[in-house]
Design a binder for these strands. Structure first.
Length: 421
RNA sequence: GUGGGUGUAGCUCAAGUGGUUAGAGUGUCGGGUUGUGGCCCCGAAGGUUGAGGGUUCAAGUCCCUCCACUCACCCCA
């Protein structure tokens, strides 16, 4: 019979890797917590309308990548392709803007996009999102970026590139859009097929096209950064000087674009060379109009998303630091000894010790092998002889020394020895 | 959605131009003195060669179709 496999683009995270995820999540909780962010747990399904309105009707995500279906109640639902929209929805739905002027939230969980899988790209992938609402102060932009970099460093990623840009606001972007559209329209013939299409849908996207011909054209085209309005210019400068106060090297990439429509002003991206074509491990930006567009009060915000699969792939987390090893293995010989081991082993566990044993009635040799393989520091040898004499043998697997250990008080003796390790 | 690459044991891979019962390493299990791990030695289990069809006396090998995985385009975390 043919076995059933996981759905394409959906992955299992097995033990060995799952511990690394826990490590990364633990660091995030710790550092985000220090910066005053609190966790919000969100549903994975939302009304389709939420994403259509926030992400943008003409974006690739909405046009062709969403897992959308009609529920039995004739309602169109979508498995979230990103988290910011959901955070905004919850922010509005629960009136969080009323309880506090500044709201800092983070959330961890799976996102879904029906793209063709490749290295670093999956149909279900996990993101770690942080969103800060209620301030348009540029220092907040720098603070959020600083938090991201601090987190990345805490998991050992120190050599990633931080790129920032400004995408302008409703005051300056439309004007630039016209300029660039006009400029590129004149050079239309030199553009690739995709870019000719983008000309009418999303001209800004042409800036990060990888086709050589387009790159050359774009190299001489005007940049949005040159057309920023006074407010945006000032904001962008302030973000940069904010970052300079800390040890966070960055570079301005005037050609960086974001895939979602709601971004304004600050946009940033963290990339690494170790991931193949999908080189972004984190990306984010400011979205000052998003809440209003969803029908809420004026609530400027900024946030970012970290791709956990990608981060875990590049974070140098040694196995030894995260994979648990039992402290004690109880090798039991014979039915009676096994019964004793059953009780002792579980009592130790209930007291917080990492103990392991074997009920398979296997030879002492096999059990020693297992103890060694599990990486146990000690093995307690418990046979009929030891049971009779009420004294087991505690073997130190490091130096192969053995000492007798009274059975009547074994539990406490062992806990004492393990606690001094 | 479009290209390229790859599918043989749980894992990593072998099997000149088609030719007996498809091999090795590793892992698993057992053994090498009676009750003692690592190193070494021996043995066992484990395969519908991704699936289906075709050519042939004969297909893991050649042809076709499908599927899966993978890398890239696209897009993005």
């Amino acid at each position: 019979m043919k076995i059933i496999t996981a759905v394409r683009g959906f992955k299992d995270i097995l033990p060995g890797e799952s511990e690394k995820w826990q490590f990364v999540e633990g660091k995030a909780r710790e550092i985000f917590g220090n910066f005053g962010f609190r966790e919000i747990v969100l549903p994975i399904l939302e009304k389709t309308e939420l994403f259509r309105r926030s992400i943008g009707e003409t974006t690739d995500i909405v046009e062709k990548e969403m897992y959308t279906f009609v529920d039995r109640g004739d309602e169109s639902l979508t498995m979230r392709p990103e988290a910011t929209a959901s955070v905004m929805r919850a922010y509005l739905e629960h009136g969080l803007y009323a309880s506090e002027s500044l709201v800092k939230l983070y959330t961890i969980g799976p996102m879904f996009r029906r793209e063709r899988p490749q290295k670093g790209r999956f149909r279900q992938f996990n993101q770690l999102n942080a969103e800060l609402l209620g301030s348009k102060d540029p220092r907040v932009d720098a603070e959020v970026i600083l938090m991201l970099i601090t987190f990345l460093r805490s998991v050992g990623v120190a050599d990633a590139r931080l790129e920032i840009n400004s995408l302008g606001c409703p005051a300056c972007r439309p004007a630039f859009r016209e300029v660039i559209h006009k400029d590129l329209e004149e050079k239309r013939d030199g553009l690739c097929e995709d870019c000719r299409r983008r000309l009418s849908t999303n001209p800004l996207r042409i800036f990060d096209c990888k086709v050589e011909g387009c790159k050359a054209i774009v190299a001489t085209a005007p940049l949005l950064i040159e057309f920023l309005c006074g407010e945006c210019r000032e904001h962008f400068d302030a973000v940069q000087s904010g970052l300079r106060l800390f040890d966070t090297p960055f570079e301005v990439n005037a050609r960086m674009v974001r895939g979602l429509d709601y971004y304004t002003k600050t946009a940033f991206e963290v990339t690494t060379g170790a991931l193949g074509a999908q080189n972004a491990i984190a990306g984010g930006g400011r979205y000052d109009r998003l809440v209003e567009e969803l029908g809420g009060p004026e609530s400027p915000g900024i946030g970012f998303a970290v791709g956990l699969e990608r981060l875990v792939a590049v974070a140098p987390i040694p196995d030894e630091t995260v994979i648990p090893r039992p402290e004690l293995f109880i090798a039991a010989l014979g039915k009676e000894a096994q019964d004793f081991a059953f009780v002792l082993c579980n009592r130790l566990r209930m007291k917080g010790a990492l103990a392991e044993t074997d009920y398979g009635a296997r030879s002492l040799k096999s059990q020693m092998k297992r103890s060694d393989k599990l990486g146990c520091r000690y093995t307690l040898i418990l046979g009929e002889r030891e049971l009779r004499e009420r004294k087991a043998l505690l073997r130190d697997m490091k130096d192969s020394s053995q000492q007798p250990l009274g059975l009547d008080d074994a539990e406490n003796t062992i806990l004492g020895i393990l606690s001094t390790e």
